[in-house]
Design a protein around this nucleic acid. Structure first.
Length: 758
DNA sequence: GGATTGTGTATTTTT
DNA sequence: TACACAATCC
């Protein structure tokens, strides 16, 4: 492995070709390599672009240039991105490049474009064009049903495991028949293939698809109807792909098929930023490009326009530890800037406190919160920061946190709309059939399922059929019939009402809104607010179907990007973004690099973790701070942690260790060793060998071994308060169970955590 | 049929 | 810890 030790190191400048006459301003802004990529003649082009080298700019400029020169019409262009965010950005950039918005482009995420195409030809693979796109919840329930229907124990064979396998088959473009024997494990007694097939069959009867199907069905469609494929091959004169290193096999095959027509395909990607192999992405796709498209023009972009020399140097030094890479040498003409800071903290709370203070200081110095990001490895890490920022009054946004469309009340409301739009959507109906409570419980559902299965019909058809018999008690029959009629009526109203009015009608008449209005729990008002927001969101859509499509494909919550806020998000979702000031907390062995990932993927996974670290570092423009905590509470337990090996891999000349008030090692040795099963980990030893004693900032704190609350705060006869039952006196204590004589509600048995001393 | 209590399990990343 | 599901009781 050879790599330049010093940065910036500038390669010989490529000669700028002489250009005759005036040329568009957007070309003048490009460096020679970028220009080469943009101006490459029609044909296959691969742009290997390091972080911050302007790859998206190259892609959008090439697209815009094709339009400007009149080589292709908008509707002949297929432009693919991975995220909705990237798609939106591309639309914007092309628009501002051309000075007007462009109509008719096929521009979007793989999934959105595949869905669009599939809706046009759904009947070829046995679906109707109004098919539903299932969310993860639905998928899980469906896998569970499939497992149970096969007479297998859903406890022994976890639905999520099966779903994981099915997804990986789909990522690889494998229909059930094509699943190789090598992929069959002893899961479900080796019946995986059969379960997968059953799952697919159920989807067809539900007139539904899952995410993976969008691509997979496209492939089946192209195979079953070569004439349709030929049409699209002819249609797409130019194909452009962003983040090519993240394509999985199914996406790769899809692109390759579509590109066969004009062979005019431009892909940009960076093997060092491949961080989705767990989702089926194959870096191999990028390596294979030249074989798939002989004569491809390959352009490398290595000049970084984003970060300072120190940040870039740290990133390059780190990623050089990976073996599997094409190898690029990033350089910059930027100043060296400040060294990358490494801060060691006591625990996750101090980590949050430290980051909060640093941000406040940054703000005092005139920095904008919009330019600040906290990038974490795993979602749960955001909590400590949120709590801290709230108490500081520091405005923040969490990207990719609990999403709007994932809230229970929103999913319920959407389930209603789904049944209205597509009556065969049993999963949606099942979700809301007894919400609000209608007296249609387990027993009724069992009967419904049996009837539906026997008649091979959807639930709602089975419900009607059942109502025509006397198998149900009269009361239940009336309720069910009424519900069927309601849905029928709402369905008729689709043509007459705006989507918003329809949603309002459905939510009112179904009693769903009333249910929350009558709810006295503290969350209820918030949920009603969310429902209002949902109804409002419907104003943006022409049809109910368009709205539902949006909900399933565009799950991200768009927040006002202009608002002055710190951004908190995972490293994965940070790819493609940049910030002035970046914090990378939680650099500890086990958390990052993540132990679970490494258990599954071994050395390869470690390299992917390192790429993730590389992505994180290269998000920063001016100043970067990496933190690790010596103690982290996982679940309930304290665990001592060791600094991530990546920290040592950062070249010393680009880093500095931050030390605040320090506590020397003895403070943490003793009990430390006991807490960690294997004693001190390898990172600890490495650190020690490197002559850097683990130095912990902040004041020492002693762990309290608190007794369970009940044992020292509750006594017989004590007056307590219970949220539901009000005040009462403790009669008996058995472990954490209490018997309390309430003043209003009588004597009840409750759990101690529900009461507080009054 | 419904509410309440008890249990087990999970935390990697996302279209 | 904290949530989802199951078992249990009413």
């Amino acid at each position: 492995m050879n790599r330049p030790e010093r940065l910036p190191s500038q390669p010989a400048a490529a000669a700028t070709p002489a250009v005759a006459g005036a040329e568009p301003a957007y070309l003048a802004k490009l460096n020679p390599e970028q220009r080469a990529a943009v101006l490459a003649p029609d044909g296959p082009v691969l742009v290997l672009a390091g972080a911050g080298t302007g790859k998206t700019r190259v892609l959008t400029t090439r697209l815009g240039h094709m339009l400007m020169t009149g080589r292709v019409r908008p509707y002949q262009i297929l432009a693919v991105t991975f995220t909705n965010k990237a798609a939106r950005e591309m639309v914007e950039r092309v628009g501002s490049l051309l000075g007007q918005s462009v109509e008719g482009l096929w521009l979007g995420t793989f999934h959105a474009l595949a869905a669009r195409l599939l809706r046009r030809h759904a009947e070829v693979i046995g679906l109707k064009s109004n098919f539903t796109i299932l969310d993860t919840d639905d998928q899980l329930r469906l896998t569970k049903q499939v497992i149970e229907a096969a007479d297998l124990d859903a406890k022994r064979w976890a639905p999520r495991v099966l779903l994981g396998m099915i997804q990986s088959f789909k990522d690889r473009g494998l229909v059930p028949d094509k699943v190789p024997d090598s992929a069959i494990t002893d899961f479900a007694l080796g019946r995986t293939r059969e379960l997968y097939a059953a799952y697919q069959a159920r989807l067809v009867t539900l007139n539904a698809c899952d995410f993976g199907d969008l691509l997979l069905h496209n492939l089946s469609l192209f195979q079953a109807a070569p004439d349709i494929l030929a049409d699209y091959q002819k249609r797409f004169h130019a194909i452009l792909v962003d983040e090519y290193q993240d394509t999985n096999v199914a996406q790769y095959l899809w692109l390759r098929l579509l590109a066969q027509g004009h062979r005019n395909i431009t892909c940009v990607g960076d093997d060092d930023q491949s961080i989705y192999s767990w989702r089926g992405a194959e870096v191999g796709n990028i390596l294979r490009f030249e074989q798939d498209f002989p004569g491809a023009v390959v352009v490398r972009l290595e000049r970084n326009y984003r970060s300072t020399g120190h940040i870039l140097g740290a990133a390059s030094g780190l990623i050089a530890h990976n073996r599997a890479r094409l190898g690029k040498t990033l350089w910059t003409e930027d100043e060296l800037g400040a060294r990358v800071q490494i801060a060691s903290l006591w625990d996750d709370q101090e980590e949050a406190r430290f980051v909060g203070e640093e941000i406040e200081a940054y703000q005092r110095d005139g920095g904008h919160l919009n330019g600040v990001a906290v990038l974490v490895r795993a979602g749960f890490q955001t909590r400590a920061f949120e709590e801290r920022f709230i108490s500081l009054g520091l405005p923040y946004r969490v990207i990719g946190g609990p999403r709007f469309y994932e809230r229970a009340e929103i999913k319920d409301a959407i389930a209603y709309l789904r049944v209205v739009a597509q009556p065969a959507d049993d999963l949606a109906l099942e979700r809301i059939i007894n919400l609000p409570k209608r007296g249609l419980g387990d027993a009724t559902m069992q009967l419904l399922w049996r009837t539906a299965r026997a008649a091979e019909s959807s639930l709602i058809v089975a419900a009607r059929a059942l109502c025509a018999t006397d198998e149900l008690r009269p009361k239940v029959r009336t309720t069910l019939l009424r519900l069927c009629d309601d849905f029928e009526r709402w369905r008729m109203a689709i043509a007459e009402l705006t989507p918003r009015a329809l949603a309002e009608t459905v939510l009112e008449e179904s009693g769903y809104v009333r249910m929350w209005q009558d709810d006295r729990t503290p969350e209820a008002p918030g949920r009603l607010e969310n429902l209002k927001e949902l109804v409002q969101a419907l104003d943006d859509f022409e049809t109910l179907a368009a709205f539902l499509e949006h909900v399933s494909l565009v799950m991200d919550n768009t927040q006002d990007p202009a608002a002055e806020m710190v951004t908190i998000m995972t490293l994965h979702s940070a790819k493609g973004l940049e910030f002035q000031r970046v914090f990378l907390p939680g650099w500890e062995e086990g958390l990052f690099p993540n132990q679970r990932a490494m258990d599954e993927g071994g050395a390869k996974a470690l390299e992917e973790e390192r790429r993730l670290a590389y992505v994180g570092i290269t998000r920063a423009r001016r100043l970067l701070t990496i933190c690790y905590a010596a103690n982290r509470r996982i679940y309930n337990q304290w665990a001592a942690s060791v600094p991530a090996r990546f920290i040592e891999e950062l070249p010393a000349e680009h880093t500095e260790f931050l030390q605040r008030q320090t506590i020397a090692e003895p403070a943490m040795s003793g009990w430390f060793d006991d807490l960690r099963p294997g004693g001190r980990g390898p990172g600890f030893e490495r650190m020690r060998a490197a002559g850097k004693p683990p130095v912990i900032a902040g004041e020492a704190r002693v762990l309290t071994t608190e007794l369970p609350k009940s044992q020292h705060r509750l006594a017989l006869g004590q007056r307590v308060f219970h949220e539901k039952f009000g005040y009462g006196a403790v009669q008996r204590i058995e472990g954490n169970k209490l018997e309390i004589a309430f003043e209003k509600a009588g004597t009840k048995k409750v759990i101690d955590s529900f009461v507080t001393p009054a």
